[in-house]
Design a protein around this nucleic acid. Structure first.
Lengths: 241, 241
DNA sequence: CGGCGTTTTGATCCACATCAAGCGGTGTGG
DNA sequence: CCACACCGCTTGATGTGGATCAAAACGCCG
């Protein structure tokens, strides 16, 4: 059972990045009325592919994943949802992907029907949603390059660089040196995202560690001394987050 | 030099599927004023990654592709644009992908600035664009499964099934037997889409042919006696286009 | 301490990449 | 009208990155 809590929109950490980013006071008040927070434990399924979903919403904290499972059990993650990312598709009443909490996750959920009404009536929300969807589409396409053409080492580097950049972007002065981050994913979850096996992920992470590109502190904590050095391992010439 | 021609929107073959699908007479008239047709020969580049693009638009006929190139020459296609698909990103003045005409292509182009004004002012266009973008996002995510987890044979089957379904959807009575289609892609282009080499593509296509899943008529013409049989080769349990 | 989930490490295997010809169709210039 | 080159495709021989199979080590918690 998800646990509930509450918070004013104006105090919300993702206020200026989420689907509500461009809302004015009035619109925010409307959202406030239809929102509910839900909390999920690490590993918990938020929804199964094919399930009806009565809500859409934003990730407030933690990391959720979207994934597909083939009948023989092969799994591919198709989205990594970090704070401010949007979950659910307006106009469709079920997910076509499994949604899972990779770490403890808090969602800000809006009931579908009133949210869709808002979407029709307030251009700010619709505009922002279009923009976010276009960004996700670019991200998905960038990931297609990773899955289609990159080596195992390049894939790991790409994942680390993308998480590092995303985390850094929350600061107002994005660092490029001595970035420290807590990997929100197990080796297995990484392998599902990267289209590899967990053994290969483990080997390549340790190789990058030995090569000094990253410094492991335990299993999950990663220190990136120089982001440019990591970028050089991604195989991309010029960077995009 | 792209060749020009003209056509009334009401007579347009993609009228009810493209970004203009929900437009009324008035809105159509506005679009009519800012549109220009352009024609590209097979193999011609429509735009290079990083190029400024002064227009957005729809594919009217033919097949265009979006692709990324790594500095060492590895290529991954990230989008296959069939008639009615939208090209370009509102709010961004350059492509981040290479856009190429795979066959002879006709585009219906809108100058960026007036189109963006239309987006703000007429909800029908914005709504439809959001919907199309969400569809593309789903398609991109489905393709991530193909690239991350499927075998060479499954990839080929997935491509053929997806093109077959897309072609069939233009008819009002979608067939599931004896589908005939002209592959709009060379073996090399297919390999770029599928994350394989052209040799592997060639071998697997001929294998599917030998196994009776498809029947080749020349190099490009494919006869699919039974779409369900082909689906069974994609590795997916239940189908989505 | 003992059990369980995560991660590492090692040995072997295989699907697909790579390298290398050869083949039909088509266009071009002598 | 033929010689030749070029392009898209096929086919074969060989190599290899990552999968698979197997087991041990490392927390972590009860």
């Amino acid at each position: 059972m998800p646990h509930r809590l509450n918070l004013r929109c104006t105090d919300c950490g993702i206020r200026h990045r989420a689907v509500c980013a461009r809302c004015d006071e009035t619109e925010l008040a409307q959202l406030e009325q239809i929102k509910v927070y839900r909390r999920y434990e690490a590993g918990q399924k938020i929804a199964w592919a094919g399930d009806p979903m009565s809500f859409v919403g934003s990730v407030v904290s933690g990391v959720a994943t979207l994934s597909q499972t083939m009948e023989d059990g092969r799994i591919q993650m198709v989205g990594l949802l970090l704070p401010s990312d949007f979950i659910g598709r307006p106009g469709r009443d079920s997910t076509i992907y499994d949604v899972t909490a990779a770490s403890a996750v808090t969602l800000c959920c809006f009931r579908r029907a009133p949210f869709e009404r808002l979407l029709r009536d307030t251009p700010h929300v619709a505009e922002r949603l279009l923009e976010m969807t276009l960004d996700e589409l670019d991200a998905a396409r960038d990931w297609m390059l990773v899955l289609g053409r990159k080596t195992a080492r390049e894939r790991i580097a790409s994942l680390l660089a993308s998480v590092a950049r995303r985390e850094a972007s929350f600061d107002m002065a994005p660092k490029t040196h001595d970035i420290r981050l807590e990997l929100p994913l197990t080796r297995e979850a990484m392998s599902e995202y990267l289209g590899l096996t967990l053994e290969t992920v483990s080997r390549q992470i340790n190789q990058l560690n030995r090569d000094g590109v990253i410094e492991l502190d335990g299993k999950r904590r990663v220190h990136i001394p120089d982001l440019a050095r990591l970028d050089a391992e991604t195989g991309d010439g010029s960077m995009r987050a």
